[in-house]
């Protein structure tokens, strides 16, 4: 059960080693990296590659660790008791299973994605230490211990908004998805748009890496933005010549909306383009 990337996901060697270590040793893998470099996609693709069910748990600022285990729906039990419903006698009827519970009870070995863990409260990772270590937890209401049938493969993504506690980090493997170099980027684009003309790709990548080099951009375009942009270029049937000739007429690349997501960035880019044109005297 080795992960070596898939038809639609290019994995670098260091990523493969980290993923395989996490799978073999059954420990969580913490994935960090610039937004849009495929952190979340990784879990989805690994689940596809090893044909395991995928359970996604998206974290918000209000998410508590307990939400992932279970919740006791006291309000509906109260309502049922007032209406004289029979279900009220069994407290287990009001225990709502969380994502971790779901993963622990899965019949096959599942892939569990805990997405954007840094969005949650600072105590959140600490509250999951034991659960992720032993893959079990105790339900107080029913006095039952939920143990995992198969230890799930856990992927945790973080955008670096908060520092994660050391005790939590020690229990994980860690991988930082670096922004792909040109060679890897070509592979990635190739995987997504197999029939792309070589010269269009090379012109597009030129522009893309040029934009990333522009100092002071608020949000640098990343892999997912590049893929969107190329999709637009293909859809609009823009020829590589148009991309190349842009420094003659318009300096701002066509369909830039896919690459620059911030109007200040667009303004800045236009200003730079204008200045460059004035200098070249056209």
């Amino acid at each position: 059960m080795k992960f070596t990337g898939t038809d639609s996901y290019v994995a670098t060697e260091d990523l493969m080693v980290a993923v395989n270590a996490a799978i073999t040793l059954q420990r969580p893998l913490l994935v960090k990296g610039e937004p849009g470099t495929g952190k979340t996609m990784l879990a989805i693709e690994v689940a596809n590659a090893i044909a395991a069910p995928l359970i996604e748990w998206h974290i918000k600022s209000t998410t508590k660790a307990q939400h992932g285990l279970y919740e006791y729906d006291a309000v509906s039990r109260l309502r049922d008791s007032q209406l004289g419903d029979e279900r009220v006698h069994d407290i287990a009827n009001y225990i709502i299973h969380g994502k971790l519970w779901e993963a622990f009870e899965s019949k096959e070995r599942p892939v569990l994605l805990i997405d954007e863990i840094d969005k949650a409260d600072i105590e959140f990772p600490n509250d999951l230490l034991l659960e992720l270590d032993r893959m079990e937890f105790f339900v107080y209401e029913t006095k039952r211990t939920i143990q995992s049938v198969h230890r799930p493969i856990v992927f945790i993504t973080s955008n670096n908004e908060k520092e994660l506690p050391d005790a939590f980090l020690r229990r994980c493997f860690f991988h930082y998805i670096r922004f792909p170099d040109r060679e890897t980027m070509e592979q990635i684009v190739d995987v997504h748009y197999p029939g792309l003309k070589r010269n269009l790709l090379s012109e597009a990548l030129n522009i893309f890496f040029e934009i990333r080099e522009v100092p002071g951009l608020k949000k640098k375009p990343s892999t997912s933005e590049l893929l969107d942009w190329i999709k637009l270029l293909v859809a609009d049937d823009i020829s590589p010549e148009v991309l190349r000739s842009r420094d003659m007429k318009t300096l701002i690349p066509p369909l830039h909306g896919a690459l620059l997501k911030n109007e200040q960035d667009v303004h800045m880019f236009e200003r730079l383009a204008f200045m460059a044109r004035r200098e070249s005297g056209i």
Binding site: E13, D14, V17, A18, A21, L29, L30, L164, D166, L169, R170, C172, F173, F174, H175
Partner: peptide
């Protein structure tokens, strides 16, 4: 790669 994924968490 393996030792980096195991020993370094930042």
């Amino acid at each position: 790669y393996l030792s980096r994924a195991t020993l370094v968490k930042d």
